[in-house]
Write a protein that binds this DNA or RNA. Sequence first.
DNA 1: TTTAAACTCTACTAATTTTACAGAATTAAT
DNA 2: ATTAATTCTGTAAAATTAGTAGAGTTTAAA
Lengths: 137, 137
Amino acid sequence: MLSQKTKYALKALLYLAEQDVDHISKTVEIAEAASIPKKFLEQILLDLKRGHFVGSKQGKFGGYYLLKSKNDITLADIHRLFDGAIALLPCASLNFYERCSDCVDESECLLRHGLITIREETLKAMQGITIASLVKK
Amino acid sequence: MLSQKTKYALKALLYLAEQDVDHISKTVEIAEAASIPKKFLEQILLDLKRGHFVGSKQGKFGGYYLLKSKNDITLADIHRLFDGAIALLPCASLNFYERCSDCVDESECLLRHGLITIREETLKAMQGITIASLVKK
DNA sequence: TTTAAACTCTACTAATTTTACAGAATTAAT
DNA sequence: ATTAATTCTGTAAAATTAGTAGAGTTTAAA
């Protein structure tokens, strides 16, 4: 399941994607439109900025805007940024690989192969969902 | 990601699937073979029993055995039993449906449609992975 | 009928993660 | 200077997860 954070991040990105290009959205504006606690959203937008998905303008009349094209922001990207691995176990993950501490021989693990298959399929599906595809209905 | 509980449940089921039919496995035997804390495993096996995936024989020389065919136990089943919904949000779930509290109009929600697509695809993938398919390499 | 060896059940606890909130610092426009 | 915004760090409550404890129940066999 997605965490609230990821869900809020997606809703914020959707809001930004719906604005005119060059429009700069204040945090409070996004928070109200998308029903997100403002202080929590501040953190999320900072994370999105560090992930280079959004840009910001500081100071008075500042705010946030999409940095990447909405076609280039996928559900997989945002999931990885906030919730981490797509795979069901770290040992089956591409970007968050970690060995299982209780695993004697990874190549012998019956579970791992199946989980890699799942990861490949869900990843493909999640990469197919972009902010753009969500916005256009 | 899978919880430890789900991972342990799968490992326990894999162990049971590898035994001869009619063989009854003691909890301690499974725990040692699959590196699972015994007391934790007891709970897990009880849950698997309540889910009708395994059966048990009580008393001396008792233990656990597969109740369903290993072809009929899917990753989706076990995920649902221990970790709940396959979908990324409750509002996109079949078996664990719940309305989002912050959602004004569900039919208008841009996120939900995409998440339903994802759920359909991951569910199909997870239903394709059975204990049998995992055991036979 | 007693004992041993197993499952069954409920409750508890510790650690971790999630979900925020608070407030000071910084930046930029007027 | 002042105002209005982002930025940064730290804190805290709530929920979840992972695991432990211990008493109870069942069954087989001596």
